[in-house]
Design a binder for these strands. Structure first.
Lengths: 139, 139
DNA sequence: CGGAATCCGTCCTGATACTG
DNA sequence: CAGTATCAGGACGGATTCCG
């Protein structure tokens, strides 16, 4: 758990597996799904309602990817109408803590970020196009 | 720093600022730039060389966004040829630890993920399209 | 209910070329 | 050196429709 050098192979290389793995969770929805499932197993429609703004398509994609990567388990109950439950695997559980750290960081520094943005936008810095500034903000 | 409920407002809501802030770092390059700059101030071209696979465009975009969000400081030395140095702000420094946790997670569970993928791909699960499986993998 | 499939616009991305 | 400008492609994401 220490920050010893060996824990960090060459993440700067494009073919670094570590980098590739890191990329798994560096997207818009995965962290939120981790959060949602942290509360226990959920059905598709429950997650859909829990995470405001996600479409069925994105949720399906995200869940599939997470399942493939071993983060999520998908259990189908053979009843009509079908019931499908998703839950975190043990591997997925290990993600909870790190992702939580991120979330806490976001919460704690939210105001500083907002202030920095305002300051930046008011000065005459090279203006940033909306897109690049906030990323995927157009819902 | 504790995981008390109040530290987590409704991140599931689309208009949650916390969620918005979280999104800042949930992209392909920002974590890598944080890593690179953790080692100290760097010039544009140095970062470019350090982070394998990033284009000047993406690096510029990422740095601009990070600057706007108060994570990175940009210092221009008025000489010819120009020298521009980037470094983490105090706010940016606070990101180092959480991002490090993610990186460690990635490194520690890299094999489990790889195994899960293989298992998934070999069974007859609904095959995942390349794109959704690994995301932005086509370099 | 839990998706899969399709359609389709938007945005992002990587080259390439150019500038102060 | 440190970018910006431009452009073309492809990916991404939403909405809708259909199915077991």
């Amino acid at each position: 758990m220490v920050t010893k050098k060996q824990s960090r192979p060459d993440i700067f290389r494009a073919d670094c597996l570590s980098r590739d793995t890191l990329q798994l969770i560096a997207d818009e929805w995965t962290p939120l799904v981790v959060y949602a499932l942290e509360e226990g197993a959920m059905r598709f429609s429950q997650i859909l309602k829990r995470i405001d703004g996600i479409s069925t398509k994105m949720l399906t994609q995200t869940l599939r990817a997470m399942e493939r990567n071993g983060l999520v388990q998908r259990v189908v109950h053979a009843v009509v109408p079908p019931i499908v439950e998703y839950s975190l695997t043990p591997l997925g559980q290990t993600l909870v803590k790190p992702v939580n750290m991120l979330q806490m960081w976001a919460y704690e520094h939210l105001q500083e970020v907002a202030r920095a943005r305002m300051a930046y936008d008011q000065s005459d810095h090279p203006p940033i196009q909306e897109e690049t500034a906030t990323r995927v903000q157009q819902r």
